[in-house]
């Protein structure tokens, strides 16, 4: 039941996003660009930080190997 609610909520969010995208893409291409662009900018920033953690984990690992 809980999964079903989650699934429903997710479907609703996706549907709204699609609807928004269609309307914005049709009537206001710039608004659409803003939506997509902002999402992209935030995602790139987030993944760059995640990459930072990976890089640090790797360099720690190699550091350990060389010091052994």
């Amino acid at each position: 039941m809980k999964d079903l609610v989650k699934f429903g909520a997710l479907a609703l969010v996706l549907l709204t996003a699609l609807l928004l995208a269609v309307v914005a893409g049709d009537e206001g291409p710039w608004y659409f660009a803003w939506l997509v662009g902002t999402t992209m900018i935030v995602l790139i920033a987030v993944s760059s930080a995640v990459l930072f953690e990976t890089q640090e984990a790797n360099s720690l690992a190699t550091h350990k190997e060389t010091s052994q």
């Binding site: 662009g37 992209m40 900018i41 790139i44 920033a45 987030v46 760059s48 930080a49 990459l51 930072f52």
Partner: peptide
């Protein structure tokens, strides 16, 4: 600071291009 720098630099690079 290194982490903040990373996030801001990437965030800013894409934004300035836009």
């Amino acid at each position: 600071a290194a982490r903040s720098f990373r996030i801001a630099a990437l965030f800013g690079l894409v934004s300035t291009l836009a």
